[in-house]
Write a protein that binds this DNA or RNA. Structure first.
Length: 254
DNA sequence: ATGCCTCAGCTCCTGAGA
């Protein structure tokens, strides 16, 4: 079983790239973030045509998430139960017995801002919900655009970007709290290239200079850790014409 | 650098992303 996550920064713009990528990498589940379209504009037929089922949770202009899958989704949930949220950020379903949560974590903009406070509240709510989901579903994957780095190894300039957004102690404490639930960062289970990032700024030739951050993650439960055989960032789509600023991350389970 | 690029929208500038 293969699972992947990809922030595609507008499904309208990136649909051809998503279809091409799935043709080359026929994963069982692909979580998408930043659809940037309303539910009525979701191109379900394009995915049906290539043999994928889809769950989607869109929003005008911002956010929006989807789960594309070969198997049907069971027990689908949109956003975090009990957490009032105007923004479409979470989509959850069970596929072949594996509970999959696809999430677009808030950006947070700047420490001290209202958006940062929202990010912290959202992370609190997510953690408590995932804690309960893990009890009901021991085989669980939490993947998406976390907008948080684990540590300096995930940042191209850890000194210059110290305590800036995605790199603050407060955000990293929240990320570690998810690890504390019994989840594992699947990328680090396997040898990786030096300076292994998943996002690069569009500006200043950041990708070419590999000035990036690893902010897209696939966290897996203990029960799945024993099934994990590979996990890596696929940088190739970032070299496309009109690429997303993020690259997909792919996990292989036995 | 309050800069750089990209996308959506009440679109020809602004807000947001990260």
């Amino acid at each position: 079983m293969k699972l992947a996550t990809w922030n595609i920064n507008s499904l309208n713009v990136r649909l051809p790239q998503v279809l091409d990528w799935l043709a080359a990498h026929p994963v069982d589940v692909l979580a998408l973030q930043e659809l940037k379209l309303t539910d009525d504009k979701f191109p379900v037929q394009a995915f049906t045509d290539i043999g994928y089922q889809a769950q989607w949770f869109g929003q005008k202009t911002y956010n929006g998430v989807a789960l594309l899958s070969k198997a049907p989704a069971v027990d689908v949930i949109k956003n975090i139960p009990g957490f009032q949220d105007e923004q479409s950020r979470v989509l959850c379903g069970t596929f072949d017995g594996v509970r999959v949560i696809g999430a677009y974590f808030p950006n947070g903009q700047e420490p001290g801002s209202d958006k940062f406070a929202y990010k912290m509240r959202w992370l609190d709510a997510l953690r408590e919900w995932v804690r309960a989901e893990l009890v009901a579903h021991p085989q669980l994957v939490l993947m998406g655009d976390y907008n948080i780095t684990f540590d300096d190894a995930d940042v191209w300039d850890p000194v210059g970007l110290r305590e800036t957004i995605h790199c603050t102690t407060e955000e990293r404490t929240h990320l570690q709290a998810l690890i504390g639930l019994g989840l594992t960062d699947s990328v680090r289970l396997f040898p990786q290239p030096e300076k292994n990032y998943s996002w690069w700024d569009y500006r200043d030739f950041a990708f070419r200079r590999n000035r990036g951050m690893r902010i897209d993650h696939i966290l897996i439960s203990e029960a799945l850790k024993t099934r994990a055989t590979a996990c890596a960032v696929d940088k190739l789509p970032r070299k496309n014409e009109r690429p997303s600023d993020h690259a997909p991350v792919v996990l292989t389970l036995s």
